[in-house]
Design a protein around this nucleic acid. Structure first.
Length: 424
RNA sequence: GGGGGGAUACCAAAGCGGUCAAAUGGGGCAGACUGUAAAUCUGUUGACUUAUGUCUUCGCAGGUUCGAAUCCUGCUCCCCCCA
């Protein structure tokens, strides 16, 4: 058995761990789980740490289990509205669950003898009534114990609802159920989950005198103090319809040097030696950003695929590389299309192309690109306007003569302020 | 209740009868440099058929004047001091 705990340790992925976990996992092929909230139809990169935990777990010869919180998800968000909510929710939850499962399939092996699997706690909570729950579960955990948890303590001042207070029991029971029925011995989670996980361990001990383990990962932070995983456009999702492969790739490319050295351990499966080598090479020629490239490539390829990675890379080189007009003329249509997911787009009706240059770029595009003709003229005077990678120095450019694939135009204000124009 | 000060463009702040579309700084945008970084330097920063032209803009509403951000009257809001 490969040493799972050791693997996580050098990657900086352990925040808290119960005693003798390492020893247990070295001697037993075991099952472990993490709970995920099905409230969104996609995972985002904030979930990636947890996913990677399971990836390493499986690679070390254990069985990863993904718990989709169909039941807990319903409790978690009581802010519904209409009467039919329950039905809608159920459909939506199943839909979300399927989408999330297919995202896990990219990371984990769902076949073989330590195959990954997905469970939903709705299965065991559906027919579990309140009285039964109180008798069989609530009885064993004291309020004193529950109150001692940081997650609860921190909320006592500001207020905590009974529902949220109970959450640790529900989650604890999940662990117990999986322990009992699926031979799950360990639960993983973010550091904020420590308390909830321990409630599960406690429940297992009290109900059956059983042994179980817990391991949490640290909260990922950025060196500049900002939140990891957020961009101006919000979350970075794994679903390509919510975050395009290009934007996903770019997120990793733009990580700072300092963060990249930490992230490459956390988010890739590269070995310690490979990573050490990358860091040495990176520090020799930091401008090449070797680590960021390695990081972006590996993760983008797993989450999307090789082809989409390549398109994202080509798109990036169009937007940021030393890219000349000639190169632009030879671009594949696929890459051109991908530009529409990379930069803000503006559509324009084909008959508007009859207007003069300045009118097209202001009025005909609802002043989205240039707020006024003066601004446009100023931009040209400052040598700041390019179309299709070609600097524009005069105002009698004919747009309709320069469309790519008869409908696309890449407009550039300055170096990195792009607008993609689609004629329809 | 009494006395004093203020309201200017994205923000801060000068201007106190024509030369004011309004100094200066910050921010924004662009150029050079660069690692799709940081710093620095340069240009630019109300709109319009780019014009030593017109229009809109200096809290709001009126007025004086050939001419007002600038003077007068009223109003609204802010700050400070004394009770």
């Amino acid at each position: 058995m490969k040493n799972f705990v050791e693997e996580l340790k050098w990657r900086g992925l352990i925040h808290d761990i119960t005693p003798s976990t390492e020893e247990f996992l070295l001697n037993n092929s075991s099952s472990g789980y993490i709970g995920f909230d099905p409230t969104a139809d996609s995972l985002h990169i904030g979930n990636l740490v947890q996913i990677m935990t399971l990836v390493h777990f499986q690679k070390c010869g254990h069985k990863p289990i993904i718990l989709i919180g169909g039941a807990t998800g319903m409790i978690g968000d009581p802010s519904g509205k209409s009467k039919e909510r329950k039905f809608l929710d159920e459909k939506k939850l199943i839909d979300n669950q399927n989408k999330i499962r297919s995202q896990f399939e990219k990371f984990l092996d769902f076949s073989g003898n330590n195959s990954a699997s997905v469970v939903n706690n709705k299965t065991w909570f559906e027919n579990f009534n309140l009285l039964e729950f109180l008798r069989n579960v609530g009885k064993h955990i004291s309020v004193n114990y529950m109150m001692a948890k940081d997650s609860v303590k921190n909320r006592l001042e500001t207020g905590i609802s009974f529902t949220e207070f109970t959450y640790q029991l529900i989650q604890g029971y999940d662990f117990y159920w999986l322990w009992k029925n699926k031979d799950v011995k360990i639960q993983f989670g973010g550091s904020d989950q420590w308390g909830n996980i321990l409630t599960g361990n406690e429940l297992i001990r009290r109900l059956e005198g059983g042994e179980s383990y817990a391991l949490t990962t640290p909260l990922i932070t950025k060196s500049d103090g900002g939140k990891f995983g957020k961009t101006e456009d919000g979350n970075v999702w794994l679903d390509e319809n919510k975050t395009s492969p290009y934007k996903f790739y770019q997120f990793w490319i733009n990580v700072s040097d300092e963060d990249a050295k930490v992230f490459i351990k956390i988010f890739t499966q590269k070995s310690n030696n490979e990573i050490k080598k990358l860091i040495v090479n990176h520090d020799k020629e930091p401008h090449l950003r070797i680590i960021q490239n390695a990081l972006a490539e590996e993760i983008t390829e797993i989450v999307h695929d090789k082809e989409k990675l390549n398109i994202a890379k080509s798109t990036s080189s169009v937007l940021f590389g030393k890219f000349l007009k000639e190169d632009f003329d030879n671009l594949e249509e696929k890459v051109m299309e991908s530009l529409s997911t990379a930069v803000p787009c503006v559509t324009i009706k084909r008959d508007n192309l009859l207007n003069d240059f300045k009118t097209i770029l202001t009025e005909s595009t609802n002043f989205e690109i240039f707020k006024s003709k003066s601004e446009l003229v100023r931009m040209i005077k400052n040598n700041g306007l390019s179309i299709n990678k070609d600097k524009i120095n005069n105002e009698d450019y004919i747009i309709s003569d320069n469309l790519k694939f008869n409908k696309y135009l890449l407009l550039q204000k300055g170096k990195k302020n792009y607008t993609f124009i689609i004629v329809e």
